[in-house]
Design a protein around this nucleic acid. Structure first.
Lengths: 209, 209
DNA sequence: ACAAATATCACATGAACATGTGATTGCATT
DNA sequence: AATGCAATCACATGTTCATGTGATATTTGT
């Protein structure tokens, strides 16, 4: 009987998972909390689960930070991420922190059940898109030649932003006015559907431009 | 109709795979060779498959070496390893060479079919034991451990910056004051030797934290 | 020839950021 | 007990950013 804990702030999802898990004959849930803090407060030597279903975006501490704290004390507990994020950054943060599996929240419950079983048996499970990103990590030469909607000039501005340059510095570097830089950046934001330089930098470093 | 090539020296397995694949209605095999050399001799622009089922232990060139040669010329071809080896060395050699998936030879044909479909759709698939090893790669000190000078709280702030959140949003999310956020960020800049959030985001996304 | 896109620049407002200096409390280490 | 670190918070100044609205000239595509 696999003991499952759930750390999920969305009450509908949490309760649906609880119902589904308790309906299985080879596993049952022993805890369902809406934050890492609440879960850590509950967790002790006598009640620790075999597998934790962990969200990432939680009030207070993130699920990723929670992994580290939990694995420090209970390395034998398997943690299966169950989250909407499929960006490489969080995937690797989660894995590096010690997660044993990573599923996207649109995964059918039957597959979640199967993943729990696999993880409990010493294997692992990832959603196909996650598996692809993990595998691509190993493809050092693989470069996504995604067609960029940005002009050459815009890409130059992006490179400067990634380097941490201010608008003024970018203007000086390109012998253009700071208002020109603003205009380009406005256009870049529009094309990339972002609203700040963090979004631009993130897309650039992820190779999405 | 997914075009499949098979590179497998065991004639029984090769023929069984051929029969199984040709019995499917959404895929068919276009080649079945017993060595990488024979496959490369056969392969050209007009006959290239979508997915290759590749063994590792083959006469002459290994399947891993074959990956590199094939991906050099046809990066769009997906290569699914199908092998008895589940040692970490070969797994990572294969992935680093560019494999898109890795299954053990005891995988049921139905799962091989599903893996082919997943890979063809842009995802990936690994046998659970393989997935565990890949994930464990991220668990080891070797990988996850560019020792970060940042505390857990600081890393959470960094994640928020990467997401493009403002100081105000970060404060709200963590139930802390915006001045607390400022203090953490000042400390983060100091530790990372940067002077703006672009620098933080860049280091984070490059895995330098 | 005409329209669209690109590169250029301006002015404005409100908000956010970067940095400096100062502080308290609790915990861990020496 | 003393010290150092982390987390917390405050106030301040000067700079930068995000966004809106408006414009001209040049280049590119139809």
């Amino acid at each position: 009987m696999i003991k499952i804990a759930i750390v999920e702030d969305d009450s509908f999802i949490r309760e649906s998972l609880q119902e589904f898990i308790d309906a299985q004959d080879n596993m049952h849930q022993v805890a369902a909390k809406d934050s890492v803090e609440a879960f850590l407060y509950w967790l002790n030597d006598d009640n620790k689960p075999d597998v934790i279903l962990m969200d990432i975006g939680l009030p207070g501490m993130s699920g990723i930070s929670g992994i580290k704290l939990i694995k420090e004390k209970y390395p034998e507990i398997n943690i299966l991420m169950l989250t909407v994020y499929n960006d490489s950054h969080r995937i690797f943060q989660s894995l590096c922190a010690g997660a044993s599996g990573y599923l996207l929240k649109n995964t059918p419950f039957s597959e979640i059940k199967e993943a729990i079983e696999i993880i409990h048996e010493g294997g692992s499970s990832m959603s196909p898109q996650i598996a692809r990103k993990v595998i691509e990590y190993f493809h050092t030469d693989k470069k996504g030649e995604i067609t960029s909607p940005l002009t050459i000039k815009e890409k130059e501005i992006v490179m400067c932003l990634v380097d941490g340059m201010s608008y003024k510095m970018i203007a000086n570097k390109g012998n253009i006015s700071i208002e020109t830089v603003r205009s380009h950046i406005k256009n870049i934001y529009k094309k990339l559907h972002v609203h700040n330089k963090a979004g631009v930098i993130r897309k650039s470093l992820k190779g999405e431009i």
